[in-house]
Amino acid sequence: MGVLFPHRLVSCGVAIDRPEPVHPAPFFQAFGQSMTQIDQSSSSGLTRKKRRMRPELILGIALVVPGIALAVIFKLVPLVRAFILSLYQTRGFEDPKFAWFANYASMFKDPVFATSFRNAALVFVTLPVWIFLPLVLALLIFQRSPGWKAFRAIYFLPYMIAPIVVGIMFRQILAPDGPLNAFLIFIGLAPLAIEWLNGATSALFSLTSVALWSFFGLGVLTYLSGLSTVPDEVIEAARLDGAGFWRLLIEIVTPLLKPVIGYWTVLCTSSMLIWMFPLIYALTRGGPGSATMLPEYLVFTTTFEFLNRGKGAAIGMALFVFAAIVSAFVVRRMYAEGKASK
């Protein structure tokens, strides 16, 4: 089928205007033959080119349709429906009534909605820890401490465990009579042995810490793969200048890692918005009160527990605005790397 793409074969500098041999694979033979027939039946150069384009186009369409269908039916349509639903007043199982922006008005007046975004802001305050703890660990591992491979494997282990499992595990570990408090009492820090999941501030702190426990290994791995791209010459040259290993890392390697740090920051930010659901579900269910209520969990409870689907969709739209802005950075990076160069 090589002759089907004259515009590209020219670039190879090979004689292209020759009859195409029918390839032997029986499965594609029929397809290949029909192509050849089209090729032979065409005479004038212009119409030939036009006709030759068609099978390529058909194949192209056939290849992109399944993926586009999946994306449209299971992501885009639900998003549009979520927006439409957010304009309807729904009460339990009654028929929905069109209500313009009533759900949004009710959402902004709802103190729990404000609390959920305030809690999210409090979680964001811990972002520097999320960014620099894995960086420091990656640097410690990168300088080839004894057993660095084992540390790398162990640090990534928590990320592999399902967040719902992590949540249930930590519900026991953080219980008032659980091992954390037993340890704190043992080392003489009895005043710190509090109800980790049941205090107004301690619950959100615990939730964030568990999320960090679950997520930091991915950061270590991300930084390590970034560090491995630093050219050896850079490190070698700095060493010849008499720079100590640590000065080297901090003054030379870390600035080179800026893109990785940026990427990891975006990833952490989006995870804080849309990755905590199973942890909240297992650890606190948004409580005590609404101390650990985050927007993504509020969408769930409003929709499925209070059966207020319209308002749940409106809160979902508010969350979507934030999640989309953050993810757009990831998409931009992915597009730059994966698009065909012209």
């Binding site: 993926g67 639900p78 998003l79 849309i274 659901f277 969709a313 979902g316 979507f320 993810s327 990831v330």
Partner: peptide, 17 residues
């Protein structure tokens, strides 16, 4: 671009629809 842009739609937002 269309396919990777779907990344901005998290499941939490569209779960009921």
């Amino acid at each position: 671009l269309f396919i990777i842009a779907m990344l901005v739609i998290p499941s939490q937002v569209v779960i009921y629809p």
